[in-house]
Design a protein around this nucleic acid. Structure first.
Lengths: 154, 154
DNA sequence: TACTGTAATATGGGATACCATGGGAAAGCA
DNA sequence: TGCTTTCCCATGGTATCCCATATTACAGTA
């Protein structure tokens, strides 16, 4: 399978290194990425990490904004401004930079979350909070949908 | 038969492995898969499990959404982040990870419940409680319906 | 229906391979 | 020279392979 899936939490060692889950590394290889791009996620305190295609995706997103408006420029700055890329060492580890820590709140542990075509890096506690929100939204959405169906058949 | 039917309870061994019921395995293997896709169910403490094709179906669903709106992001977060592949070993067993235990409360035994296109993994006690709830809801609903019918004919 | 043998399945355990993690040493940089 | 980064190796823990044994399901026979 060549998609990033499931999540795992790894510890950051004294030198600031953390192992990228083996499963993710094999996906990276299979997709033929030689370098990983880490971008700040737009709405959440997480990093989006993936191959060059991740950049394309963000470009598309920016393209939707009116180029004369502040928003587009802000987004572009936000993404390209400090966009760092992560080097995998021989043991499949990356070094967690201050840039990463600042945006995510990561200190001693990192949770890697598969997102299909890319993956995310989270501070474990913040991830839990976010996950709870997401599940609640989806659950509410599903109830609404089934109520709407019931109403339609009455 | 290519549907998941009936239920069975199996024990988890000292290494955290548990056999997937043979008839469930044959459903998956007939399609040529050697791994399972498991997703944390939204409203109940159970895992929804199926072949990797189950994931495909979800991804197709997401593709219908505007990729830059919150809904698409939530859905992806859920099916990729709350999902995981379970590798079947040669004897048809899977290892029950903390990822599964956390959400389901599973400790020493697992009940596998056929649900047609997928099956579920439950902690036996919780399944009993849930089954009782479901029965009660259904019988309440039936009583309501028959009362409404009686009222209509009076 | 009861009994019996057989095959399929579930379970247990030793050995092995893989992976996260930690630390020493060499290599770059100020 | 100090400091950080990168390489390399050691270790413990976990997952996987492979085989043995127990248990269950099934089919045939009386």
């Amino acid at each position: 399978m060549d998609r990033f899936l499931s999540s795992a939490t790894n510890r950051i060692d004294a030198k600031g290194r953390v192992s990228v889950p083996a499963h993710f590394r094999s996906v990276v290889q299979r997709r033929g990425f030689s370098e990983l791009y880490a971008l700040r996620a737009l709405d959440v305190p997480a990093m989006d990490v993936g191959g060059p295609d991740l950049l394309d995706r963000y470009e598309e997103r920016i393209a939707l904004e009116d180029p004369f408006l502040q928003t587009a420029d802000d987004m572009s700055f936000f993404i390209h401004g400090d966009g760092s890329f992560l080097k995998l060492d021989q043991d499949g580890r990356i070094t967690v930079s201050d840039f990463l820590r600042e945006h995510t709140g990561i200190t001693t542990e990192v949770t890697f979350v598969g997102r299909g075509l890319f993956f995310q890096m989270w501070e474990p506690e913040r991830l839990n909070a976010h996950a709870a929100e997401v599940r609640q939204r989806l659950s509410a959405m599903r109830q609404q949908a089934s109520q709407a169906r019931a109403a339609g058949t009455e």
